[in-house]
Protein backbone atom coordinates (compact mmCIF):
# COMPACT_ATOMS: atom_id res chain seq x y z
CA UNK A 1 0.00 0.00 0.00
CA UNK A 2 2.68 2.38 1.10
CA UNK A 3 4.83 1.35 -1.79
CA UNK A 4 2.00 1.96 -4.25
CA UNK A 5 1.49 5.50 -3.09
CA UNK A 6 5.21 6.11 -3.19
CA UNK A 7 5.81 4.81 -6.67
CA UNK A 8 2.81 6.76 -7.94
CA UNK A 9 4.49 9.97 -6.80
CA UNK A 10 7.76 9.03 -8.48
CA UNK A 11 5.94 8.02 -11.63
CA UNK A 12 4.21 11.39 -11.70
CA UNK A 13 7.47 13.24 -11.17
CA UNK A 14 9.17 11.22 -13.90
CA UNK A 15 6.35 11.73 -16.38
CA UNK A 16 6.05 15.46 -15.70
CA UNK A 17 9.74 16.03 -16.28
CA UNK A 18 10.36 13.24 -18.78
CA UNK A 19 8.09 14.72 -21.41
CA UNK A 20 9.91 18.07 -21.80
CA UNK A 21 13.22 16.27 -21.34
CA UNK A 22 12.45 14.04 -24.30
CA UNK A 23 10.67 16.52 -26.58
CA UNK A 24 12.56 19.70 -25.79
CA UNK A 25 16.05 18.32 -25.28
CA UNK A 26 16.68 14.81 -26.57
CA UNK A 27 14.76 14.89 -29.86
CA UNK A 28 15.92 18.38 -30.95
CA UNK A 29 19.46 17.49 -29.89
CA UNK A 30 19.50 14.39 -32.07
CA UNK A 31 17.90 16.24 -34.96
CA UNK A 32 20.16 19.30 -34.83
CA UNK A 33 23.22 17.09 -34.38
CA UNK A 34 22.46 15.55 -37.77
CA UNK A 35 23.02 18.90 -39.53
CA UNK A 36 25.92 18.86 -41.95
CA UNK A 37 27.53 21.39 -44.26
CA UNK A 38 25.58 21.70 -47.51
CA UNK A 39 27.03 22.33 -50.96
CA UNK A 40 25.87 25.45 -52.73
CA UNK A 41 24.13 24.99 -56.07
CA UNK A 42 26.51 25.34 -58.98
CA UNK A 43 25.75 28.98 -59.77
CA UNK A 44 26.21 30.06 -56.15
CA UNK A 45 29.19 30.69 -53.92
CA UNK A 46 29.90 32.30 -50.57
CA UNK A 47 31.61 35.72 -50.72
CA UNK A 48 34.84 34.09 -49.57
CA UNK A 49 34.65 31.64 -52.47
CA UNK A 50 33.54 28.65 -50.42
CA UNK A 51 31.37 26.14 -52.25
CA UNK A 52 29.83 24.71 -49.08
CA UNK A 53 27.77 26.33 -46.35
CA UNK A 54 29.14 26.94 -43.79
CA UNK A 55 32.61 27.27 -45.26
CA UNK A 56 35.83 26.13 -43.62
CA UNK A 57 37.50 28.52 -41.19
CA UNK A 58 41.16 29.43 -41.31
CA UNK A 59 43.66 29.48 -38.46
CA UNK A 60 43.79 28.07 -34.94
CA UNK A 61 40.07 28.55 -34.38
CA UNK A 62 39.53 25.69 -31.96
CA UNK A 63 42.31 26.85 -29.64
CA UNK A 64 40.97 30.38 -30.05
CA UNK A 65 37.51 29.21 -28.98
CA UNK A 66 39.09 27.65 -25.89
CA UNK A 67 40.74 30.93 -24.97
CA UNK A 68 37.42 32.70 -25.63
CA UNK A 69 35.72 30.32 -23.17
CA UNK A 70 38.48 30.44 -20.60
CA UNK A 71 38.50 34.23 -20.41
CA UNK A 72 34.73 34.31 -19.95
CA UNK A 73 34.08 36.39 -23.09
CA UNK A 74 30.69 34.68 -23.34
CA UNK A 75 29.47 36.54 -20.24
CA UNK A 76 29.59 39.92 -21.98
CA UNK A 77 29.44 39.18 -25.71
CA UNK A 78 26.67 37.40 -27.55
CA UNK A 79 26.98 35.60 -30.87
CA UNK A 80 23.38 35.55 -31.93
CA UNK A 81 21.58 37.80 -34.39
CA UNK A 82 17.87 37.93 -33.77
CA UNK A 83 15.30 38.25 -36.55
CA UNK A 84 13.28 41.45 -36.77
CA UNK A 85 10.41 40.25 -34.60
CA UNK A 86 12.75 39.91 -31.65
CA UNK A 87 14.91 43.03 -31.91
CA UNK A 88 16.78 45.41 -34.18
CA UNK A 89 19.98 43.39 -34.50
CA UNK A 90 19.73 43.18 -38.28
CA UNK A 91 19.86 46.95 -38.67
CA UNK A 92 22.72 47.69 -36.32
CA UNK A 93 25.70 48.56 -38.55
CA UNK A 94 28.18 45.72 -38.74
CA UNK A 95 26.22 43.25 -36.66
CA UNK A 96 24.60 41.13 -39.36
CA UNK A 97 27.16 41.60 -42.13
CA UNK A 98 29.85 43.95 -43.42
CA UNK A 99 29.39 47.47 -42.11
CA UNK A 100 29.98 49.02 -45.53
CA UNK A 101 27.24 46.98 -47.10
CA UNK A 102 23.96 48.54 -46.02
CA UNK A 103 22.00 47.52 -49.11
CA UNK A 104 21.94 43.74 -49.39
CA UNK A 105 19.45 41.80 -47.28
CA UNK A 106 20.62 40.60 -43.86
CA UNK A 107 19.63 37.49 -42.02
CA UNK A 108 19.47 36.15 -38.47
CA UNK A 109 21.84 33.41 -37.31
CA UNK A 110 20.82 29.81 -38.04
CA UNK A 111 21.82 26.52 -36.36
CA UNK A 112 24.11 25.55 -39.26
CA UNK A 113 26.14 28.76 -38.81
CA UNK A 114 27.65 27.18 -35.69
CA UNK A 115 28.71 23.93 -37.31
CA UNK A 116 32.26 23.02 -36.52
CA UNK A 117 32.18 24.63 -33.07
CA UNK A 118 32.02 22.51 -29.93
CA UNK A 119 29.89 25.02 -28.05
CA UNK A 120 27.89 27.90 -29.50
CA UNK A 121 28.71 31.01 -27.46
CA UNK A 122 25.26 32.53 -27.80
CA UNK A 123 25.95 34.74 -24.83
CA UNK A 124 24.54 35.78 -21.45
CA UNK A 125 24.58 39.56 -21.64
CA UNK A 126 25.46 42.22 -24.18
CA UNK A 127 27.78 44.30 -22.06
CA UNK A 128 29.86 44.46 -25.23
CA UNK A 129 28.98 44.17 -28.89
CA UNK A 130 27.56 41.08 -30.51
CA UNK A 131 30.38 39.15 -32.14
CA UNK A 132 28.50 37.00 -34.69
CA UNK A 133 30.07 38.90 -37.57
CA UNK A 134 32.95 40.61 -35.82
CA UNK A 135 35.28 39.21 -38.47
CA UNK A 136 34.07 41.96 -40.83
CA UNK A 137 34.53 44.75 -38.33
CA UNK A 138 38.18 44.13 -37.57
CA UNK A 139 40.48 46.13 -39.81
CA UNK A 140 43.57 43.98 -39.28
CA UNK A 141 45.23 41.69 -36.77
CA UNK A 142 47.30 44.44 -35.18
CA UNK A 143 44.34 46.62 -34.33
CA UNK A 144 42.61 43.64 -32.73
CA UNK A 145 45.73 42.85 -30.71
CA UNK A 146 45.79 46.50 -29.65
CA UNK A 147 42.16 46.21 -28.56
CA UNK A 148 42.75 43.04 -26.55
CA UNK A 149 45.93 44.35 -24.95
CA UNK A 150 44.49 47.71 -23.98
CA UNK A 151 40.82 48.22 -24.89
CA UNK A 152 40.70 51.81 -23.69
CA UNK A 153 43.44 52.89 -26.07
CA UNK A 154 41.03 52.06 -28.89
CA UNK A 155 37.67 52.89 -27.32
CA UNK A 156 38.06 55.29 -24.37
CA UNK A 157 34.70 54.49 -22.74
CA UNK A 158 35.04 50.71 -23.06
CA UNK A 159 34.63 48.66 -19.88
CA UNK A 160 36.32 45.59 -21.33
CA UNK A 161 39.15 44.16 -19.22
CA UNK A 162 42.67 44.22 -20.65
CA UNK A 163 44.10 40.83 -21.56
CA UNK A 164 47.73 41.68 -20.97
CA UNK A 165 48.51 38.16 -19.88
CA UNK A 166 48.07 37.01 -23.46
CA UNK A 167 51.04 39.17 -24.45
CA UNK A 168 54.74 39.14 -23.67
CA UNK A 169 57.12 42.02 -23.24
CA UNK A 170 60.23 41.49 -25.30
CA UNK A 171 63.29 43.71 -25.23
CA UNK A 172 64.74 43.94 -28.69
CA UNK A 173 68.47 43.19 -28.78
CA UNK A 174 68.39 42.37 -25.06
CA UNK A 175 68.45 46.09 -24.22
CA UNK A 176 66.51 46.22 -20.94
CA UNK A 177 66.75 50.00 -20.63
CA UNK A 178 64.71 50.67 -23.76
CA UNK A 179 60.97 50.30 -24.29
CA UNK A 180 59.80 46.69 -24.46
CA UNK A 181 58.03 45.40 -27.51
CA UNK A 182 54.62 43.83 -26.90
CA UNK A 183 54.45 40.46 -28.61
CA UNK A 184 51.31 38.30 -28.78
CA UNK A 185 51.56 34.76 -27.45
CA UNK A 186 50.28 31.80 -29.43
CA UNK A 187 47.05 31.99 -27.46
CA UNK A 188 46.51 35.63 -28.42
CA UNK A 189 47.09 34.74 -32.07
CA UNK A 190 44.62 31.86 -31.79
CA UNK A 191 42.02 34.13 -30.18
CA UNK A 192 42.49 36.61 -33.01
CA UNK A 193 42.16 33.79 -35.55
CA UNK A 194 38.94 32.78 -33.90
CA UNK A 195 37.51 36.30 -33.80
CA UNK A 196 38.49 36.97 -37.40
CA UNK A 197 36.75 33.76 -38.44
CA UNK A 198 33.42 34.91 -36.99
CA UNK A 199 31.32 35.61 -40.07
CA UNK A 200 27.90 34.10 -39.68
CA UNK A 201 26.21 35.68 -42.66
CA UNK A 202 27.05 33.33 -45.50
CA UNK A 203 24.21 33.14 -48.01
CA UNK A 204 21.99 30.14 -47.40
CA UNK A 205 21.91 27.56 -50.16
CA UNK A 206 18.55 28.49 -51.59
CA UNK A 207 16.06 25.68 -51.18
CA UNK A 208 14.49 26.31 -54.57
CA UNK A 209 17.94 26.43 -56.13
CA UNK A 210 18.99 23.23 -54.41
CA UNK A 211 15.82 21.50 -55.55
CA UNK A 212 16.40 22.72 -59.10
CA UNK A 213 19.96 21.46 -58.89
CA UNK A 214 18.77 18.02 -57.87
CA UNK A 215 16.27 18.02 -60.70
CA UNK A 216 19.05 18.94 -63.11
CA UNK A 217 21.16 16.10 -61.87
CA UNK A 218 18.32 13.65 -62.18
CA UNK A 219 17.56 14.73 -65.68
CA UNK A 220 20.59 16.25 -67.37
CA UNK A 221 18.62 16.69 -70.62
CA UNK A 222 16.34 19.30 -69.16
Amino acid sequence: MKKDCCSKLYLGLAAAFGLPWLLLIVVPYVKLSALEPVSYPEDMKAPDGSTVYPGPRAGEVSLGAKVYAREGCNYCHSQMIRPTYAGADLWRPGWAGPETDRESPKRETRPADYLGETYAFLGYQRIGQDLSNVGYRIADRDSLHQHLYNPRSVSPDSIMPAYKHLYKEVYPDGDVSGDPKIVPTGEAEALVDYLLSLKKDAPLPDKAGAAAGEADEANPQS
Binding site: W21, P28, L32, S33, L35, Y114, T118, A120
Partner: peptide
Protein backbone atom coordinates in the same frame (compact mmCIF):
# COMPACT_ATOMS: atom_id res chain seq x y z
CA UNK B 1 14.75 13.34 -7.77
CA UNK B 2 14.85 15.90 -10.62
CA UNK B 3 18.23 17.47 -10.05
CA UNK B 4 20.50 14.51 -10.93
CA UNK B 5 18.50 13.93 -14.11
CA UNK B 6 18.90 17.57 -15.11
CA UNK B 7 22.53 17.83 -14.05
CA UNK B 8 23.67 14.66 -15.79
CA UNK B 9 21.77 15.46 -18.99
CA UNK B 10 23.21 18.97 -19.14
CA UNK B 11 26.79 17.92 -18.44
CA UNK B 12 26.76 14.99 -20.86
CA UNK B 13 25.31 17.02 -23.72
CA UNK B 14 27.43 20.10 -23.15
CA UNK B 15 30.80 18.56 -22.33
CA UNK B 16 30.88 14.99 -23.59
CA UNK B 17 28.62 14.45 -26.58
CA UNK B 18 30.00 15.85 -29.80
CA UNK B 19 26.63 16.84 -31.25
CA UNK B 20 25.00 20.14 -32.02
CA UNK B 21 26.83 23.21 -30.70
CA UNK B 22 23.71 25.35 -30.60
CA UNK B 23 21.79 22.73 -28.66
CA UNK B 24 24.62 22.66 -26.11
CA UNK B 25 24.05 26.35 -25.54
CA UNK B 26 20.30 25.77 -25.45
CA UNK B 27 20.73 23.01 -22.90
Amino acid sequence: FWFPWIYITANLIIFHFKGSAVMSAGV
